[in-house]
Amino acid sequence: MNDGRSPGAARTGPRILLSVEDEGWRTLLSRPADDLVREAVFAAADGAELAPSIGTEVSVTLSDDEDVQALNAEWRGKDKPTNILSFPMMPLAPGDAPGPMLGDLILARQTLEREAAAEGKSPDDHFRHLLVHGILHLLGHDHETDADADAMEALEISILARLGIADPYADADEAPDARH
């Protein structure tokens, strides 16, 4: 995948290694996945104030429910698919500079598609939201406490606004599962 540089251009975000393992992604999204991934990852990096010169890489895998369910069961003890899994290369606190490899993000197409339809969102917008959410996890943000959830949610909303995506939490119930 293009790493965000054109010949002679300055680096504008992390280098992205994209793998499409489920061909359904090509018809689900209205624009090429690499464009949407780049937009979301760069916006999240900018919003989290990750220095563009840091030279870090992130791996993004577009997979399916079956593979994500297996990973979720193995690594989180939850035998069900989820929309995105984030695997940081090393634990970070928000604001810490990452090393050369930020980590891995793996998305489940069918779960994303069901959620977007149920929530009346475009698959493209939901996709970019999940990528922003995943990048923030890789950068040390979490939603384990209400205060952390509020801070992460506010940052997500700000980043998504830059992408022209409405607040995804505006109509969510206050229950933690509805928020994240």
Rank of each mutant, 00 (worst) to 15 (best):
M1D: 07
R5Y: 03
R5G: 03
P7Q: 13
G8Y: 08
A9H: 12
A10L: 15
G13T: 06
R15P: 01
I16C: 00
I16E: 00
L17K: 08
W25V: 05
R26V: 05
L29E: 09
S30M: 08
D34N: 13
V37F: 05
V41P: 01
V41Y: 03
A43R: 00
A45F: 10
A48K: 12
E49A: 15
I54W: 07
V60Q: 03
S63W: 01
D64P: 00
D65Q: 07
Q69D: 04
A70I: 11
E74R: 03
R76Y: 15
K80F: 12
P81L: 02
I84M: 13
I84V: 15
S86C: 10
F87Q: 10
F87R: 08
L92D: 03
P94M: 12
D96E: 01
P98C: 05
M101N: 11
L102G: 06
L102T: 05
D104C: 08
L105M: 09
T111M: 12
R114S: 13
R114K: 06
E115R: 01
A116R: 00
A116N: 09
A116G: 11
A117L: 12
A118N: 14
E119W: 08
S122C: 08
S122L: 10
S122A: 14
D125K: 02
H126K: 14
H129I: 01
V132H: 00
V132K: 00
V132S: 02
G134W: 07
I135A: 05
I135F: 08
L136M: 10
L138I: 02
L139G: 12
A147G: 11
A149T: 02
D150P: 00
D150Q: 09
D150I: 02
A154K: 15
L155W: 02
S158T: 15
I159W: 03
I165S: 07
Y169L: 00
D171M: 04
E174H: 04
E174W: 03
D177T: 11
A178H: 01
